[in-house]
């Protein structure tokens, strides 16, 4: 449905997106993940025909974004990082206006409106001026305007930005509810969010795709076996330099790549996180006990997006 072919976008001499190529199938829910400035918004804006690439080609359902932007605009609903609403209008008047902008007649809008209000949870504020609504509800109105015409492609740029935790959960549920009805592209720099809403994740760093796949696929490819967290009581070992000794011993275990040694709390307990390959739990337990330290806790943590993201960002920097 969507094809980006070697797309580059420069702002002045700075490449916001560089040689970007990917394809998205109809019905997918794709999450664009990246730090601020990674090129997520620029990519989504090019797909929304708000920006043209400096080079390369963007097509949506076979329509070229440069030559046939008008046709693409009929297919998309877009929520930018700030909801594009007229504050003095009521929710209903605004959605009717948004529908008419997308070539819907009043009868079609009236037929579609109940479902949109239901999907976005706006039924009870339909006659409220938008300026009286909270940011969370304004964001819902932003999504409602994007889906009023039942677009094939829904593009959401940072849909949870500025929302409180309760609103984030509501927004997440709303986006989940829209899956299957539209092809959805959403961007965020919040890792947990993208894992819970997307079928496939595109990781961007400095305008390039560093990885793509489902969370499980990314974990399998990049995360290996993840992390082991242990809590140690160093006083058992006693003496100065105990921490360094234990840290060196842990680092020497085969399969352990990185030892993140925390500082001791008042009770002398230290939290240590090990990153590595393979199952190192038994070796770690033996190392700690034989070293004379108290092993208070040992926990295997599956590698999450956070680890993969940090790892890929470090690799990209290198």
């Amino acid at each position: 449905m969507i094809v980006l072919d070697k797309v580059t976008k420069y702002y002045g001499s700075h490449p916001a997106v560089h040689d970007l190529s990917f394809e998205i199938e109809e019905g997918e829910c794709i999450g664009f993940l990246g730090l601020n400035g990674a090129g997520k918004t620029t990519t989504l804006r090019m797909l929304s025909c708000l920006l043209l690439p400096t080079s390369g080609r963007v097509t949506v359902k076979g329509f070229d974004a440069e030559e046939q932007a008008h046709e693409i605009r009929k297919l998309i609903g877009f929520l930018p990082d700030r909801p594009p609403v007229y504050p003095e209008m009521t929710v209903k008047a605004f959605l009717v206006f948004a529908g008419k902008l997308r070539n819907m007649d009043r009868a079609a809008i009236d037929r579609r409106l109940p479902k949109v209000l239901d999907d976005c949870g706006l039924g009870h504020v339909i006659d409220e001026p938008i300026q009286n609504l909270s940011h969370g509800y304004q964001q819902r109105v932003g999504i409602a305007q994007a889906i009023i015409h039942d677009p094939a492609l829904l593009i959401l740029d940072e849909p949870i930005q500025g929302l409180d935790p309760v609103q984030i959960v509501e927004m997440r549920n709303m986006i989940r509810g829209l899956r299957g009805q539209h092809t959805i592209l959403l961007s965020t720099h919040i890792l947990s969010e993208i894992a819970q809403t997307s079928d496939r994740i595109l990781m961007l760093h400095e305008g390039r795709i560093t990885a793509q796949g489902s969370e499980e696929e990314l974990a399998a490819r990049f995360g290996a076996d993840g992390r082991v967290r242990i809590d140690l009581e160093l006083r058992v070992a006693g003496g100065a330099g105990a921490a360094e000794t234990v840290q060196a011993a842990l680092g020497a275990i085969g399969g352990v790549d990185e030892v993140d040694f925390g500082s001791a709390d008042d009770a002398g307990v230290v939290q240590v996180t090990l990153r590595g390959r393979g199952d190192v739990r038994e070796a770690v337990a033996r190392c700690v006990v034989e070293g004379g330290s108290g092993l208070l806790r040992l926990e295997q943590k599956e590698s999450g997006l956070e680890d993969i993201f940090v790892q890929l960002s470090k690799e990209a920097e290198a």
């Binding site: 909801p83 594009p84 997308r102």
Partner: peptide, 14 residues
Amino acid sequence: ASGTMTLLFTSPVH
């Protein structure tokens, strides 16, 4: 300034 131009620009409006 209010961001509503984005609504117009992403709609099939010349």
